[in-house]
Simulated assay, not measured.
Amino acid sequence: MEVSMSVDEVVQQISDLAKKEGEPLRKKQVKKSNPELMKNALYYFPNWDAALEQCKENQA
């Protein structure tokens, strides 16, 4: 699988989306609106929840 973002870029984009949306990000919603972000997130993390958890840890 070819990735187009670094893990830091993935985490940053997820954080930015979360701030913009103001609500938890649903996998289905992100997959539809930003498939490139989802593809890269699932490359670096075992699942979408793990990617979200990493974003929360980075914000703390």
Rank of each mutant, 00 (worst) to 15 (best):
M1A: 15
M1C: 13
M1E: 14
M1I: 14
E2Y: 08
E2L: 11
E2H: 12
V3T: 15
V3N: 01
V3I: 14
S4W: 08
S4I: 13
S4P: 01
S4C: 12
M5K: 02
M5S: 04
M5F: 01
S6F: 01
S6R: 04
D8Q: 04
V10K: 00
V10G: 00
V10L: 03
Q12W: 09
Q12C: 06
Q12D: 11
Q12G: 03
Q13P: 00
Q13V: 02
I14W: 05
S15P: 00
S15E: 08
D16F: 01
L17T: 00
L17Y: 08
L17F: 03
K19P: 00
K20M: 11
K20N: 10
K20F: 12
E21A: 09
E21Y: 11
E21L: 08
E21F: 05
G22H: 01
G22A: 14
G22K: 09
E23Q: 14
E23Y: 10
L25I: 00
R26F: 12
R26C: 07
R26H: 12
K27L: 14
K28L: 10
K28G: 05
Q29N: 14
Q29P: 02
Q29V: 14
V30N: 03
K31N: 09
K31W: 03
K32T: 13
K32A: 13
K32Q: 06
K32E: 13
K32I: 09
N34H: 12
N34R: 02
N34S: 12
N34K: 05
P35L: 07
P35G: 01
P35R: 02
E36C: 05
E36A: 15
M38T: 11
M38N: 04
M38S: 10
M38D: 06
K39E: 15
K39M: 09
K39C: 09
A41L: 03
A41I: 02
A41M: 01
L42W: 04
L42R: 06
L42D: 01
Y43Q: 01
Y43D: 08
Y43K: 03
Y43M: 05
Y44L: 00
Y44H: 01
F45V: 01
F45E: 05
P46A: 09
N47A: 11
W48K: 11
W48H: 10
D49Y: 12
D49T: 12
A50I: 04
A51L: 03
L52H: 04
L52T: 02
E53K: 15
Q54W: 08
Q54Y: 07
C55D: 09
C55I: 07
K56G: 07
K56L: 08
K56F: 04
N58Y: 13
Q59D: 07
Q59K: 13
Q59R: 11
A60H: 10
